[in-house]
Computed example of a mutant assay.
Amino acid sequence: MELYFLGTGAGMPSKERNVTSIALTLYDERGTMWLFDCGEGTQHQMLRSPLKASRLEFIFITHLHGDHIYGLPGLLTSRSNQGGTTPLVLFGPPGLESLLEPVLRLSQARLSYELTYREIHEGTVYEDDRFEIGCELLDHRIDSYGYRIVEKDKQGKLDASRLKELGVPAGPLYGRIKRGEIVELPDGTIVDGAACIGAPIPGKKIAILGDTRRCGAAVRLAAGADVLVHEATFDATLDELAQTYYHSTAKDAALTAASAGAKSLILTHISSRYQEDEVTRLLEDAREHFDDTHIARDHWSYTIG
């Protein structure tokens, strides 16, 4: 499971950073990829990356500002030309479908796959036997959501040494015991499968937030997360400006991570005023309050766990 940053800039692209788009690769878990936001030029960034649009399963949009959605028409149509045939689900705030459908219709875009829209509201937006994804409304100029991705706990490992002590012969009985069944051995010994399986393996927790000022919803979404991805548009000296434009400073992001008990923090959505080594100001601001902080850059990846 890996985060791959296709765009890490704020508002508009710069020479160093494209606008927001983050991929979560789940190749081992389900053979697919999820995308969070899709700013203008995302399809170009993907061409320069190891990612393939054909493997997209879900796209999650945090809010309807242009630097988070203007790349959708191009990416959706290019996916057809790049061999994408599997269904794609687009999650987003109210208004996303009415904004996007006229563009696809008037441009006579032909999609080779089924595209489904799912309008999000606070609460669980998707759940299966492996993952649960929820969202909450953040504090921004327009409705902006943060997502919490929770991988459900996995079954513990079979205690092979314990089975050997009990004299369980290798073969089909191992499978039954792994399912937690109670089995009887040829000599009459009763083995409780549940007692031969280790503790559940905790799943990973990830929080990916849209644009926001510091707020309680961000802390709840990031509670105990393995990694929090948080905007850091400004440095701490521009706190008043951040408040005025409903954005966060790097310090705000760090305080949120610390309050939430997150393990790692990744800063993104960086203003174009911070070019080259100037981004170290953001990192220094954040690390005063949260040590395990990283600053994302375009085409940088982070392995979770």
Results as ranks from 00 to 15, higher is better:
C196W: 02
A242C: 14
H294Q: 05
H63N: 13
P50K: 06
A195T: 10
E101A: 12
P200A: 13
R220W: 15
H299I: 12
H65K: 14
L265Q: 00
Y4I: 06
R130A: 07
Y246N: 14
E40T: 10
H121Y: 13
K15C: 00
D252E: 11
A217V: 15
C196V: 07
T237F: 01
G198R: 03
A53C: 04
A217T: 15
E151S: 06
H44I: 12
D226F: 05
L138N: 01
S80D: 04
R281K: 10
C38K: 09
P93S: 09
I149Q: 01
L51S: 11
A236V: 15
G210C: 00
L166A: 06
G171P: 11
I142S: 13
D211S: 05
A232N: 01
M33G: 03
L72R: 12
L56N: 08
R79S: 01
G95Y: 03
E288F: 04
E57V: 12
N81M: 12
L228T: 11
E57W: 12
E276G: 06
T116W: 13
W300V: 14
A262C: 11
H140T: 10
E132W: 04
R220C: 12
I142M: 13
H247R: 13
H289G: 10
Y4C: 02
E101Q: 05
P73M: 14
A160F: 14
D187V: 01
P93G: 15
L255S: 07
G224E: 15
D239Q: 13
D128F: 03
K204P: 11
E181G: 01
T189A: 06
Y117S: 09
T20I: 10
S80A: 05
E119L: 08
